[in-house]
Amino acid sequence: MAIFASDEPRLSANQRAVMEKVLARFQLYGPYLLEATNREDLQARVDTLLEDPRFHDDLRLFAKLMAAAEIEDYAALLAQGPKKSAPDWIQALGPAAASALYRTRTYTMEMARCVSVLKHRQRATLATNLPSASEPSKDPLAFLSDAGTPVPVARALLAGTRVNALQTALGAAILHRKSVEPWLGLAIAESLAENSRCFLALLAALTGTELPASILPPEEQLDIRQMVQQGHSLRDAYEHFHADAERSGEPVYPATR
């Protein structure tokens, strides 16, 4: 069975074997998401994966295997492919999901363009949003509790990790030709599209990539410099608050009576 759409870039036998191995590894996660009973349950299961250190360890393994097989440029090649084709995706999640999957594919190709730019600045791939493969001990969700991380950035980074999780569900459906209920296929596709667009906004801002309004409306585009300044201001205010509280001798969070 063809796992990759026929219009995607050709891979060598060794590269394809690596991709097959990686996809098989992620079958630990995809079937779990496909057992969701409703949209809320799907979201809860995605977030459960994000809290599992093994999931992030496997993302790092993904990056290492891709690098070892010299597939770092796969995303860039994908960006050059036809924009109106996602046959395997639609077959896996159902015709109702087609519109959202076309949007997801468009966002994915634009993310690939951004990643191609990032690649010249740091070792990065679509598979590992946070942390980098060289930082195995770093908490991949540390940005959620970092007072200096601007909320829009944290939201986009979280969206990127959710895309990784949702892709395992799509991969499981493709590999096993599993019959996915229409509502579930649509929910996965819509969540993929929404989170991909959110993460794309961050990648575009980081790389200075200009995107047409049809892909990313101006109101959803991010200004990194402005957000970094806001993040520094927020962190300073947070630190001053705790310093003032410590000097006063009063508890920062008084017990509720």
Rank of each mutant, 00 (worst) to 15 (best):
D88W: 00
A67S: 08
Q80Y: 05
V117Y: 03
Q122G: 00
A76K: 08
H120T: 11
P87T: 10
T108S: 08
P87Q: 11
A69E: 02
A86E: 10
A124P: 00
Q91L: 10
M109Q: 15
V117K: 09
T106Y: 03
P82V: 03
A67G: 01
L126E: 11
A124S: 09
L118R: 09
R121G: 00
A112D: 13
K84G: 11
M66F: 11
L65S: 06
M66N: 01
A97F: 08
D73R: 12
A92L: 11
S85W: 12
M66G: 00
A76S: 14
A124M: 13
V117P: 01
L101P: 06
A67D: 13
A98T: 12
E70V: 04
R113E: 08
Q80F: 00
P82D: 13
G94S: 09
A68H: 13
S116F: 01
A112C: 12
E110I: 02
E72S: 10
M109A: 06
M109L: 08
R105A: 07
V115N: 05
G94Y: 06
Q91Y: 04
Q91S: 13
V115H: 07
R123T: 12
Y107T: 04
R103H: 00
V117E: 05
E70F: 00
A112N: 09
A96I: 08
P82G: 07
A67H: 09
L65H: 09
A92G: 05
S116H: 07
S85T: 12
G94E: 08
L93A: 04
C114V: 01
R121E: 03
E72V: 09
E70T: 04
M111R: 14
R121F: 01
G81D: 15
R113A: 01
C114H: 01
A79N: 10
L101N: 02
A68N: 14
Y107P: 02
D73H: 13
V117H: 05
A112R: 03
A68G: 15
K84W: 12
T108K: 09
G81N: 10
L118C: 03
P87N: 11
S85K: 15
P95D: 11
K83G: 07
A69C: 02
K83Q: 10
S85Q: 14
A76N: 11
L118K: 04
A97G: 01
A86F: 12
K83D: 12
M111E: 15
P82L: 03
R121Q: 03
Q80A: 03
P82K: 14
T106F: 06
A97V: 05
V115S: 01
T125D: 14
D73C: 05
A76Y: 10
A68I: 02
I71K: 06
T106M: 12
G81H: 05
R113M: 05
T125I: 09
L77R: 15
P82E: 09
S116A: 15
T104V: 07
Q80E: 15
C114W: 02
A124V: 15
L65D: 13
K119L: 03
P95C: 10
P95W: 06
W89G: 11
Y102M: 12
L93I: 01
R121S: 02
H120N: 06
L78W: 12
Y102Q: 07
A112G: 15
Q80V: 04
K84N: 14
A112W: 04
T106S: 07
P87R: 13
A96F: 06
V117I: 13
M66K: 13
